[in-house]
Design a protein around this nucleic acid. Structure first.
Lengths: 221, 221
DNA sequence: AGGTGTGAAACAGTTCACAGCC
DNA sequence: GGCTGTGAACTGTTTCACACCT
């Protein structure tokens, strides 16, 4: 008899829809700022806080399992815990930044990550003038350091904050170094082999989309 | 006879789906980097460049009107023009930044906007120590300057790069000053009355979503 | 009474597949 | 032969509406 099998879930847990996953961090955000004196929260209250409707909130939360109480609402503390668990925020994830220009530096100094389950553990650049300088409490490393550091620090998530011409090459290097996902601030689409999740954050794109709706003057979120 | 009416479209043009609007800046991006010697591009080539499939590309582009040629593809130059026109990128949009901290400063110095149809024309902060200092070629203004400057400069789009506690108040001020849309970098949901388009860019949220997929080890974009 | 959980309906977005044109 | 344009099928997401529990 395979003893190890005891802890393996027999039924594959139903996957949470992407649209819902995208909203989970948002729920967590508002729950973390929720008044401490309130022990429960209703789907309607949550809906107001994230500008959605209560049916969507209930559907979303139902994917975490059924943790609400009819006639009462959801236990705030328990809900926070469930969402954190689902998002894997039970540990602090080490993250590295590649590119120590304006944006990379700003991200390195930005304190907001630590409170949200992530810690910037390294920042790298190819410019010899930048290597060795300090940003916040980090020292800028050389590109060649990435592979070794990543292994040592167990980093699986990287942020690309390089100029466009360098980004593709960096992405491939990161994939080779075993990174599982990349947050890409370079305004281009990265193409990398294998199972690697890439999300793009593109400021000009965001402005262009806003511009479209201003122009159409049908601003409605 | 109303002479002015000649230029007014008689038929209200069909609205472009949100999902398509979100991709238009991406098409424009790749078309702007497209080899100059190529005069046409196929839906398959575009699809490869943005990591989508060709059917989606054809559907998207069909909303701009039918500008492709069967058996040949799309004229690159014409397509660029159509997308720019649709996004309203026939002029440079003036944009202001509120918040001159790490992120606001980095955005103010970031040169990438100008090439993409936007120009940062003002940056504001409430900290008296920052007011009057320069960031790039901008001088940090006081919050009270926003209303007057916005009118003078015709700015309708603003970027919020303040800390969370200030963001809601700033958003309301911007709405009052006549801004039509806001790009919000403060990690919270802004609630503002009236027809104002707000997009949120939240770094921790992005990381949390990536973390979820790393954890599930089903990284697939 | 109040508020969740959830099938079912409605809607939005994607993909298929092929007629039609170059 | 190659590639677009587009109805039709399909998949994913949102919303409705109400049974059910406290």
């Amino acid at each position: 008899m395979a003893l190890e099998s005891y802890n393996v879930p027999l039924v594959k847990m139903a996957r949470i829809p992407r649209a819902t996953v995208n909203r989970l961090p948002l729920y967590l955000r508002v729950l973390e700022r929720y008044p401490v004196e309130e022990t429960t929260v209703s789907s309607q209250e949550l809906a107001d806080l994230i500008k959605e409707n209560s049916a969507k909130v209930r559907k979303d939360l139902s994917f975490l399992g059924s943790y609400g109480v009819r006639g009462v609402g959801y236990n705030v503390e328990h809900l926070r815990f469930q969402i954190r668990r689902e998002l894997g925020l039970t540990k602090i994830w080490p993250v590295i930044i590649v590119g120590a220009g304006n944006l990379g530096s700003a991200l390195g100094k930005y304190g907001g990550f630590d409170a949200n389950g992530f810690s910037i553990v390294g920042i790298y650049d190819s410019d010899p003038d930048k290597i060795g300088t300090t940003i916040g409490d980090l020292t800028v490393g050389a590109m060649e350091d990435i592979e070794g550091d990543a292994k040592e620090l167990n980093a699986e998530i990287a942020i690309i904050a390089t100029p466009v011409p360098a980004a593709q090459e960096v992405a491939e290097r990161l994939a080779g170094a075993g990174f599982k996902s990349i947050l890409n601030f370079a305004p281009m689409v990265l193409r990398v082999e294998g199972d690697i999740e890439i999300r793009r954050v593109d400021l000009s794109t965001e402005l262009q989309i806003l511009g479209y709706y201003v122009q159409q003057s049908l601003a409605e979120s």
